[in-house]
Design a protein around this nucleic acid. Structure first.
Length: 916
RNA sequence: GCGGAUGUGGCGAAAUUGGCAGACGCACUAGACUUAGGAUCUAGCGCCGCGAGGCGUGUGGGUUCGACCCCCUCCAUCCGCACCA
């Protein structure tokens, strides 16, 4: 009776499904555990071996927690709105709902092959009306709220209206315009339109105008993280800046809380750093510089007010509003030319080229502290949207300023003495200031406060906190997304009533953009007639809250019942890639905080712990075709001649050796290919690249599951290395894992002898192996070190084999340990041992230290750090006894060469080192 | 340019708190069993050396009785980015 994985796996997958083995109740007296995967976008390409890495890890952890007695929520769904489906629709005329549905079916069957323990009754699809009804509902919550800076939380907009009616906005600075001031009387005198325009500037979801990434080819606006080097991520079309009416989320109001919340959650330090860099809180000051011979003032933002005596020039953004009024006639032409040049440059060019550009304006400002005249320059490296759009340049202390000064031959003032050597800027804060009048002799970091005080006293500046993060653009001129539940009347945005939700996405004839840069919905007469918003929501809308819907997916009266979300609470373990570090993870944190503020849920961070899976890269293979021929030469020969390097399907290459017969069949073009070999073989070129269909380097999990079984595939993915680590996929080692499972099987059943397991009492040696393994698997699974756990299983089976152990008492415990990793084979053998019920409902074995305690230890003994002998010594031996045993040892005496002992280091249970 | 990470045998890797570097597996070599092997089993497998032994965790230095691990220098590779003052 051999290990027939195909039969076994089919059988148990069917059985689990029919008995709903993985259905999870929302009420239980067990402790809860919520294990979540980042749900996939169901692309047409299907799953490749990179996708399941995280899913397998979370599946193992979920099953492990269930064995440990937890009620485990482990759901899966689909992030189903998005551009690719719409692009596909444009190209092939297939409705996105149809292609998305087909892709989901394909994903589902691929996922099912691997034997995951998802509770599929909780599946969500963001494109289902029953789901996006609640996405729209949450949008309305945000629309109907403002961020109250006194309470430091979101608050209903009605509360703000009531305040305005009583006292104006004196206590509620407008986040969009801090100059805006009005009294109650003024407020009450405004008509509805004027009032609504003001309220829009407070709402957490608001409409405004802004420069956005406009992609003409796709007819839509893209988020920054959807644009790569000036081209759209999907389709690779050029992207330019354009001003459009857009919806935004006022995420900037949450900047401080998003930052503070990082201390309460377990994300990797790298991930936290990425988020806090994105939020980019900086402490600095604004300083006013009077323009010489002019009434205007240029306000700069700087994080280094201490360097104010080192200012050699000012740089303002080309878009800065003051430029036009302060340029002397002598420089008008040059400046206009430079501004025209900057405008002509697309984002793409600015990123691709790193050259230093700029232009002197001919105007000067006066340094308020020493009355020196300082030239004003404009340059594209200063951004209009950050700080005040103007900086004071201190070349001796800032690298970019230094390079700019060098490039334009601007003299550099040194204010940090020896800390500046004239060849590069030194951004230190520890130097002692020189050439700085009242700051001379003071350490820079202490000078900051002194300058700030002086600025305020002189009335020419103040301390200022700035954030890099901007409000999140929240609308797209696309079809395949959630419609906004908004109606426009007389320029006022009216939210739909809750009872009118969902506002269904209508069917369109044409998926192309509407008139004037509007979305496809603008092509629908009915839609326009009802004055519905023609934008749709971006991809991250549905994914910002999906973890809540899993808790209560069929609720028709609420997005999630409060009692249910109180039970499940935060996601205990969230697994996914780092690519969402600053997009999805920040948005869902913000939505969670807003829902918490408004009392809809009881926690304000969604994910207690995040585990980042590494990226599985593809390992591409290449063939070399002699230019203009059908002759393919092996890699070693290719260097000597003119060849074209072409991707070849990795699946017809064994290691680096091409299967030439398969190659001829692969594409009709190659049917008549001939080959020039090296030592009888065709050797392919190798490169590590992103795994992608177009590079023919994808490996489909279905093929591996079919060949080796799901259990082998699962364990092999884990065995590859630490789950967090990125690595190229290599199928080579999978045999070893498969051999391990076959060997495990042979502990129970032999091909020749049949059943070999027995019902006998285990020996101490066998129990020692078992309990060593229990400890190892428990610890490794807890710390997500799945690769070492797999090797722990291998060691266990090897040792049981060497001991000739076929005893049920030991083996059935091993099966429970193994069930999270290789659920099918464990389930089968568990049943064959005569157990009732599923192995997943067994109890996790309890480690008993008495089976593994040792009385003595083989100590490695070193002389001067070099191991010279191994001596067995009782663990309870005293230090004096150890000294005697070691120094009396013949081998040790030989290596000591009669030299006196200077010191003897004895680390109990570890090692001994003799220093001579 | 800025930010984050990673460098250990032919390959994937292990070493959990500063304590025997290379567990476990792949590939490879030799052998056993076999009609057969893409099954299974046994042994070997970092480098140099006949050996004793020496050397060895990207480079160079430091701390320590002891460093893959901590500190500093440099080099290489990968990933991300909004030139963020």
């Amino acid at each position: 009776m051999e290990y027939q994985f195909r039969t076994i796996e089919k059988k148990w997958q069917t059985s689990w499904k029919s008995q709903k083995a993985y259905q999870v109740p929302n009420e239980s007296n067990k402790p809860k555990c919520y294990v979540l995967d980042m749900f996939p976008y169901p692309s047409g390409a299907g799953l490749h071996v990179g996708h399941p890495l995280g899913y397998i890890a979370s599946d193992i952890y979920s099953r492990y927690k269930r064995l440990k007695g937890f009620n485990v929520l482990h759901p899966m769904g689909y992030d189903a709105f998005g551009l690719p489906a719409e692009q596909y629709a444009i190209e092939h005329g297939v409705h996105p709902a149809k292609s998305t549905h087909d892709n989901i079916d394909n994903f589902r069957s691929q996922l099912d092959n691997i034997g995951f323990c998802y509770d599929w009754d909780r599946e969500v699809r963001t494109c289902d009306a029953s789901y996006y009804k609640w996405t729209q509902w949450i949008f309305l919550q945000l629309f109907n709220s403002y961020f109250d800076r006194q309470l430091n939380k979101a608050n209903p907009i009605e509360a703000l209206v009531a305040t305005f009616e009583k006292e104006g906005n004196v206590h509620h600075v407008c986040p969009a315009d801090n100059q805006l001031n009005f009294t109650a009387a003024t407020w009450n005198s405004w008509d509805e339109k004027a009032q609504q325009d003001v309220l829009m500037q407070y709402r957490l979801a608001f409409c405004g105008f802004g420069e956005v990434n406009w992609c003409a080819a796709l007819g839509t606006v893209l988020a920054n993280d959807e644009v790569i080097n000036g081209f759209s991520e999907r389709g690779g079309h050029p992207v330019e800046k354009k001003k459009l009416r857009q919806w935004y989320l006022r995420i900037t109001e949450y900047a401080d809380r998003l930052l503070a919340g990082l201390d309460t959650i377990q994300f990797s330090d790298a991930m936290k750093e990425m988020q806090s860099n994105w939020i980019g809180k900086s402490y600095g000051a604004e300083i006013d510089f009077k323009v010489a011979d002019h009434t205007a003032t240029v306000t700069v933002y700087t994080t280094r007010p201490d360097t104010v005596f080192g200012v050699d020039f000012l740089v303002v953004a080309p878009e800065h509003e003051l430029i036009q009024s302060i340029i002397p006639a002598s420089h008008e032409k040059e400046v206009a030319a430079y501004i025209a040049y900057v405008k002509s440059r697309s984002e793409r060019e600015r990123i691709a080229e790193k050259k230093i550009t700029g232009c002197f304006t001919g105007a000067y400002v006066v340094n308020p502290f020493n009355q020196q005249h300082i030239p004003i320059w404009i340059s594209e490296y200063v951004l209009a949207g950050y700080g005040t759009g103007a900086i004071m340049a201190v070349p001796c202390g800032d690298d970019r300023d230094f390079k700019f000064a060098q490039h334009f031959n601007i003299p550099i003032t040194n204010i940090i003495g020896d800390a500046y050597d004239g060849t590069a800027a030194n951004p230190t804060k520890e130097a002692i200031l020189t050439n700085s009048e009242f700051l001379n002799g003071i350490v820079q970091k202490e000078a900051i406060a002194i300058v700030n005080e002086k600025l305020e006293a002189m009335g020419i500046g103040k301390k200022k906190v700035n954030f890099r993060m901007r409000d999140a653009a929240f609308s797209r001129q696309r079809y395949w997304g959630e419609p906004f539940p908004i109606q426009w009347k007389n320029g006022i945005a009216y939210p739909l009533a809750e009872s009118e939700l969902p506002l269904l996405l209508p069917t369109v004839e044409n998926y192309g953009p509407g008139p004037d840069g509007e979305g496809p919905l603008a092509n629908i007469e009915d839609w326009k007639a009802n004055h519905f918003e023609t934008n749709t929501m971006p991809g991250y809308a549905g994914s910002s809250w999906y973890f809540l819907r899993y808790m209560d997916p069929h609720n028709t009266t609420a997005f999630c019942d409060r009692k249910v979300s109180d039970y499940w609470g935060q996601v205990d373990l969230y697994i996914g890639g780092t690519e969402h570090a600053v997009g999805h993870l920040l948005y869902s944190r913000m939505w969670t905080k807003a829902l918490y503020d408004l009392g809809h849920i009881g926690f304000d961070e969604p994910f207690k712990k995040l585990l980042n899976q590494g990226m599985i890269q593809g390992s591409s293979r290449f063939v070399y075709r002699k230019r203009g021929t059908q002759v393919f030469v092996s890699a070693g020969l290719a260097k000597t001649m003119e060849v074209d390097q072409l991707h070849v399907d990795v699946n017809i290459v064994d290691g680096v050796e091409l299967d030439t017969a398969a190659f001829k069949k692969w594409k009709p073009d190659y049917a008549h290919a001939t080959f020039e070999l090296e030592e009888g073989k065709y050797i392919c070129g190798v490169e590590v690249e992103k795994m992608s269909k177009s590079k023919f380097n994808t490996v489909n999990p279905d093929d591996l599951v079919n060949k080796y079984g799901a259990d082998t595939f699962r364990m092999y993915e884990m065995f590859l290395g630490p789950v967090e680590q990125s690595k190229p996929w290599d199928t080579k080692g999978i045999e070893g894992v498969h051999r391990f499972l076959k060997k495990l099987w042979r502990l129970f059943y032999d091909e020749m002898k049949g059943k070999v397991w027995v019902d006998e009492k285990a020996t101490p040696a066998e129990l020692k192996v078992l309990h060593k393994t229990i400890k190892k698997i428990e610890e490794d699974t807890e710390r997500h070190s799945f690769n070492t756990a797999v090797s722990g299983f291998m060691i266990c089976v090897n040792e049981l084999f060497d001991l000739g152990c076929h005893k049920k008492e030991v083996l059935e415990q091993v099966l429970v340990l193994l069930a999270p990793y290789a659920p099918h084979i464990s389930e089968e053998l568990w049943a064959l041992l005569g157990n009732q019920g599923l192995v997943i409902d067994a109890d996790f074995p309890i480690f008993d230290a008495q089976h593994v305690t040792e009385t003595s230890k083989e100590y490695p003994v070193s002389i001067n750090g070099k191991v010279r002998a191994n001596i067995a010594i009782a663990l309870d031996a005293s230090e004096a006894e150890v000294h005697k045993i070691v120094l009396d040892n013949e081998l040790i005496q030989k290596w000591m060469e009669g030299k006196p002992v200077k010191k003897l280091i004895f680390v109990k249970g570890k090692m001994i080192n003799v220093v001579v």
